[in-house]
Amino acid sequence: MLPEEWPIAAPAADQNAPARLAGRDRLSTVRTDFFLHPEERLTEQERALMTAMLHCLVGDIADELRAALPSGLSAANDDGNLRLVEVLVSRRLLDRPALVSLLLRRADEERIATAAAARSGRRESRVLQGLVSHADGAVAAAAMALILGRGKRRDRFGQCLLHFDDLPTAEAGSLVHSICAALRPELGGIVGSAAADRQLSEAARQVLASHDPGSGIEALTATLARMLDEEEDLGEEAIVAAAMEGEMTFVAEAVSRRSGIPADVVFDELLSADERRSMAVLRTAKLSRQVAASLLAGIGDLLGMANPGKAIDVFDALTDAEIESARTWLTTDQTYRDAVTALGFGHGKRTV
């Protein structure tokens, strides 16, 4: 097979390709990568989407920081921002659990939504669009705010983006200051290191002041779900309809409202590819067997459950005690759950 027919091999055929590290110098990384279970690897689509989102996010923040500088330093071009990302990646300053988790979540959302849209033949979400004309004005406004927010997270080619406001407050602060540190040599060469430190600190303050977590997609979706719940319109039909359209963030927020389990935890449980964990979280929300069966028949394979019959048997077999145990475990602090798992107590990621 020629390299042109196999893109992965193409760089190796490039006589001008940069030299790789000697084998033993990268042995630890190669061992980890070589023995990684295939099911745990990122697909090429996931890697490409997550990389594009990360590059755009870092580039947008860097441009905002440059615009806030009094020195008049102009925004860099794409090549300049690419080098900035490369510097941050090389020092592992972007290898942050919360940031990578959010990138992966967006990739999962995009995968499921795209597949669901292909099955239904509809490009737009009828569930959200229909809520814009809701009888309650607050619900209609919340639905419109979510639709507009989602529109801002697409580039001109329809590519999914991660917005600065989607980041948790602590993560936004860490990322902004890391980018400032990477910009320091660029600015310091113009105004000197002391002036660069002062100007970058002020620029970071201005950019962080504009950060609005309440405008993040999860926050906007949570607001809509809360308002629908208050109007007693967050019923099973709405959850099934949203699931059939691949609206997993909305489904997670709806289940969260009904179960008391945090929405991000619900999302992880539904996408765990573990029938017991997924069915347990549905039972904590007191969803009916018919709803569970509809979800499994419609998007079960997209959630990693290829055998609906097996999953619905698990749904039926769960006892009240097991359901309450799952609710108790999933409402504990994430740090506590991680520590319990790390210490080998209980059953790790199992919820019941």
Score class of each variant (00 low, 15 high):
Ile61Ala: 14
Leu99Val: 08
Val100Ser: 07
Leu131Met: 09
His55Asp: 13
Ala135Tyr: 07
Asp78Glu: 14
Ala141Ile: 00
Ser133Ile: 13
Leu54Asp: 06
Ile112Lys: 04
Arg150Asn: 14
Arg153Trp: 08
Ser120Cys: 06
Arg156Ser: 10
Leu99Gln: 06
Leu146Asn: 00
Arg91Tyr: 13
Ala52Pro: 06
Leu103Asp: 02
Glu109Arg: 11
Arg122Phe: 04
Ala113Cys: 12
Gly158Pro: 02
Ala145Asp: 08
Val89Trp: 03
Glu109Phe: 02
Ala116Trp: 00
Asp136Tyr: 10
Arg126Lys: 09
Ala143Gln: 04
Asp136Pro: 10
Ala113Tyr: 10
Gln129Asp: 15
Glu109Trp: 03
Arg119Lys: 13
Ala135Gly: 10
Thr114Val: 00
Ala62Ile: 03
Phe164Ile: 11
Leu102Thr: 08
Leu57Ile: 12
Leu102Tyr: 06
Met144Lys: 04
Asp78Ala: 13
Asp136His: 03
Leu104Val: 05
Asp63Phe: 07
Cys160Ala: 11
Glu109Leu: 13
Asn81Met: 04
Ala135Phe: 05
His163Ala: 15
Gly72Cys: 15
Arg150His: 04
Ser71Phe: 07
Leu128Cys: 04
Arg111Pro: 05
Leu103Tyr: 06
Ala118Pro: 13
Val85Gln: 02
Leu69Asn: 13
Asp155Gln: 08
Arg91Lys: 06
Leu148Glu: 14
Asn77Gln: 10
Asp165Gly: 02
Glu64Ser: 07
Arg83Ile: 03
Thr114Asp: 10
Cys56Gly: 09
Asp136Met: 05
Ser120Gln: 09
Ala140Phe: 05
Leu161Asp: 03
Leu88Phe: 01
Ala115Tyr: 03
